[in-house]
Design a protein around this nucleic acid. Structure first.
Lengths: 187, 187
DNA sequence: CGCGCGATTGAGTAATTTCAAATCTAGTGG
DNA sequence: CCACTAGATTTGAAATTACTCAATCGCGCG
């Protein structure tokens, strides 16, 4: 499962053999079962996760018990409640497995140590953070300017494979409409 | 106006005198008048902007002519159409001045050169990108889970000063409701 | 005083939500 | 092979919410 991580990082920065083993030593490998909470809303956030296998949802449960999905994390995605992770505050949202999953986990201390010992990882995570920021902005834009139907079609075009792994209920919670409304969108 | 930039960067990384003048040499200073387009939707995006003075909006005009505001950029904010800036594609949105403004502008080439010559700037922009990503995620969360009224109150709490500089119409385009609906929110 | 711009109000229309009931699907055991 | 159950999805109908478009109001400025 380290191969995936290496391939993923080397898409952005080339690595020597010993550099990668240095990187790998900062991660912990964990397995999770379907339904398991990786991060619990209100709890502490020990790690940022690189999903090697499986599928998770980053989800916020509001006061009335309704779920709102911020993102789906599938293979080769980085995920965490970043605010809580970087600031050491309690989690605003949960990270929950929709399938049996495996992840490489890195703590904030390890991450900082990795930055200090291998500065080119700063460049790597800079690219990741930029892309994450851009993706979030595009999501905001589509929430502001597109109807639920248009958002559904955009998602279908961008992540066709993902939609097959996710229930309509989950999808509705991601798109920001009730599952009944989503169901009515395609006639 | 370079002082603001220096103070801003030194909130995250300390700088020696010659390091800062090296940084400063990568920026171009520009003034803009109220109403002026800094980035034109559909045009090329030459720079990322550090707002020294004034206020801008990052805005997308949809097919029916309606405006949607992604963010307001006030003093000490970095702003651009980042996707277009990094990928060299044409701009999805415009950056327009709501007040007379001044900005320090850096091109992609200059930015990359700056990374190469002063690697700690990678760390600086990594922090900025992370914060931007987190802020965008929080915005998505509030669009998904809060009513327009709650979003208004959240914004009022987080950026009370900003609301005084922005018209209700602009605010509505940021919150994602019509200006009439916004007007009805407070009685 | 009158113009112009932004903000508000009113009324009708459209879209979405809610809650309940009906339907469908996959997996299980007889 | 069939019946049965649990969970997910769809449908129906009423209620709520937001939108549109038009008209009115408020205020600063020449």
């Amino acid at each position: 499962m380290l191969n995936e991580l290496r391939r993923h990082i080397e898409e952005i920065i080339p690595l020597k053999e010993e550099e990668f083993s240095h990187i790998a030593s900062h991660f912990v490998f964990k397995r999770f079962k379907k339904g398991q909470l990786v991060i619990r809303q209100g709890g502490i956030v020990q790690y940022t996760y690189f999903v090697v296998k499986g599928l998770m949802k980053l989800v916020f449960v509001d006061g009335s018990g309704k779920e709102h999905i911020l993102s789906f994390a599938q293979e080769n995605w980085w995920e965490s409640d970043y605010f809580a992770f970087f600031n050491g505050t309690s989690a605003t949202m949960s990270l929950k497995c929709l399938e049996d999953s495996e992840a490489l986990c890195i703590s904030l201390d390890s991450l900082n140590e990795l930055y200090a010992s291998l500065p080119k990882m700063e460049y790597f995570f800079l690219q990741k953070a930029n892309n994450g920021h851009i993706a979030s902005q595009q999501r905001i834009l589509s929430l502001l300017s597109s109807s639920a139907e248009e958002r559904y079609n955009q998602l279908l075009k961008r992540h066709p494979l993902l939609l097959q792994r996710v229930s309509k209920t989950q999808l509705a919670a991601y798109l920001g409409v009730s599952r009944e409304t989503l169901s009515r969108l395609y006639r």
